[in-house]
Design a binder for these strands. Structure first.
Lengths: 168, 168
DNA sequence: CTTGGAATGTCAATAACACTGACGTATTGT
DNA sequence: ACAATACGTCAGTGTTATTGACATTCCAAG
């Protein structure tokens, strides 16, 4: 507030080193806040962020395959497998052999898993909703625009894929 | 682009579960992009993100103490110490015993450290600058507003402290 | 001045979680 | 048959976090 604007009359952006550093730090501190609430809930069951991410994207694409989830999360299958194993054992995730292709395993959430995912999602959504309210309607659009521009093109495909056949 | 606006005529925000989920996913994918470039540079020296964070905030507050850095980064002093030890050994960070209080160690970057930190910072700044350009001037303000509203109040103090006596 | 507590920083051991590499199994398709 | 795909697992390694213990320094109460 009250700082110099990052643009000039020509509409071009003139960004000082300082402004960019503040942006970097904003990402750092905001991401900490962004994960703080779910982290607390996860810790109760001695889960980590990896479990949260898996649950989130399985909820997002029910029936997805292991390979698909792998490329979305960008981790190795060994890492994902360790997480999935515990989630399946704990009865949060369902692992069903494919009908057409029996090599594939289709992942979905059980009732318990769905409920737990909602808890995590709500905790994170609450903070985001509060931030949106505080920043105002115009800020929300800008927030999303910058974040989308910051993604790797390869990752952005995954991000956009969730909007394909769904109402937004 | 082309999706429904998250506000209505009254100016209040009406956010669907779907919109909030997209926001959550935007943060997830964007943060991956945000760290991708520095991660590559760090890997060359077999450093991790912890080294980057330490270098960044030492650059930001030259002469800072270990305890101060500790509360900014939000890790245990043992974790920070391992990182600092390698950085000091590698000649990137200077560790000087305090004059007034000899318990304290004042941290600063060596010439090499400053140069390396610049490399990391530039890689990250380049992507952020590109994202800003792509999203436009108005978006930048919104981006920062939402991120700042998302921080924990305790962490936000640290974030703001860097603007105190400095030109912004 | 001495002594005890608080602050600061360091060392050691351990755990969580990621990675790479290699291998095994079942299935699919040519 | 043969190769490729999808999934799972074992072993080894590395980063980063944790807790516990300890040394040093400062400061203030006795």
């Amino acid at each position: 507030m009250g700082n110099s604007q990052p643009e000039n009359t020509s509409g071009l952006l003139f960004l000082t080193d300082e402004q960019l550093r503040k942006g970097i730090e904003a990402m750092f501190f905001a991401y900490r806040g962004f994960t703080a609430d779910p982290d607390r809930i996860l810790a109760e069951r001695s889960y980590g962020r990896a479990h949260h991410r898996a649950l989130h994207f399985i909820q997002r694409s029910p029936g997805t395959t292991v390979n698909n989830l792998l490329s979305t999360l960008g981790v190795t299958k060994q890492s994902l497998n360790r997480v999935l194993r515990t989630l399946i054992q704990d009865g949060l995730v369902l692992n069903e052999v494919g009908v057409q292709d029996k090599r594939q395993r289709h992942l979905s959430l059980t009732v318990d898993g769905s409920e737990f995912e909602q808890n995590l999602s709500n905790a994170q959504s609450d903070r985001m909703r509060a931030a949106y309210r505080q920043a105002g309607p115009d800020a929300v659009q800008g927030f999303r625009s910058v974040l989308e521009a910051m993604m790797d093109p390869e990752l952005k495909k995954h991000y956009e894929s969730f909007s394909k056949g769904q109402r937004l």
